[in-house]
Amino acid sequence: MIPVKGSTGKSRLAHPDRAELASAIALDTIEAVCGARHVAEVVVVTSDGQLAVRTVSEVGGGRRPEVRVVPDPGAGLNPAITAGLTAARPDRPRAALLGDLPALTAADLDAALDLAAAHERAFVPDAEGTGTTLITASAGAPIEPAFGAASAARHAASGFASLPIPAASTLRRDVDTADQLSVAAHLGLGPRTSALL
């Protein structure tokens, strides 16, 4: 499950076409998720109609995994994640991933999902160690997102196990600022984001 603001996101990134950059980052993230062998279905939550169309046409394309778009209820990040999780099948393991990981590789996501399989609920902290980029839950396990400032501590306090993902992993490199985008670029950006930069 991936929440995406789309063209209204990434207000702290200085770029001549910030809206297109935000969409490129999201689409590159979604495409990387689709390449992971442990992913059977992708649910994208967004209120951006253009991004929804591009998600289905550029990334979905009728191949496995199935890609679905559900509307963002418009009440913030955690309600958007909850909407996506509600749309997913509860009898399968579920995960929620931020939509701003332009350097993400399918291999890094698969490595985390392998580790997560040993826990009822788990999370991956961001590169700074204070935020969260991924939460997971086993089939049938309750999952309540607590993304936002200091979310790593909140997820840990509510019983999510912190996964030992290396600091250099692309899964820990979410992008909100130009400096974070520069660091992610050294890891290798997805094709849409790279083309814009």
Rank of each mutant, 00 (worst) to 15 (best):
S7I: 12
V124I: 08
S11E: 14
Q180G: 09
P125W: 15
D17K: 01
R172D: 07
S169A: 07
V45K: 00
L109Q: 07
F123G: 10
I143S: 06
D17F: 09
T193I: 15
V59D: 00
S194D: 15
G35N: 06
A156L: 11
R37P: 05
A52K: 00
L104Q: 10
A152M: 04
L189M: 15
D174M: 14
A52L: 09
R192K: 06
A152N: 06
D28L: 10
H155P: 01
V175S: 04
R121V: 08
A32D: 02
T177L: 13
T133R: 03
A184C: 09
L104A: 02
A14H: 12
T46E: 15
P145E: 09
V175D: 06
T29Q: 05
L101A: 02
A26S: 05
V39A: 05
L187D: 11
V43D: 06
R89E: 08
R18N: 10
P142M: 11
A127Q: 14
A146M: 14
T105Y: 04
R154G: 12
F123L: 02
A14I: 13
A88R: 11
R94S: 03
R173M: 09
V69E: 06
A141N: 02
E41A: 04
R173H: 14
E31H: 10
A195E: 11
R64E: 12
D174L: 04
V69T: 02
A26W: 10
L109T: 03
A185Q: 13
A184D: 08
P102Y: 00
A75F: 11
S162I: 05
L27Y: 12
G99N: 01
V175K: 05
D48S: 05
C34T: 11
S158I: 05
R64Y: 07
A127H: 15
A152S: 14
R192C: 13
P102L: 12
L51Q: 06
R172N: 05
R54I: 13
F160N: 12
P79V: 03
F123K: 02
E58A: 08
T193E: 04
G60P: 01
G140F: 04
G76A: 11
V45L: 09
G84H: 06
K10M: 15
A118E: 15
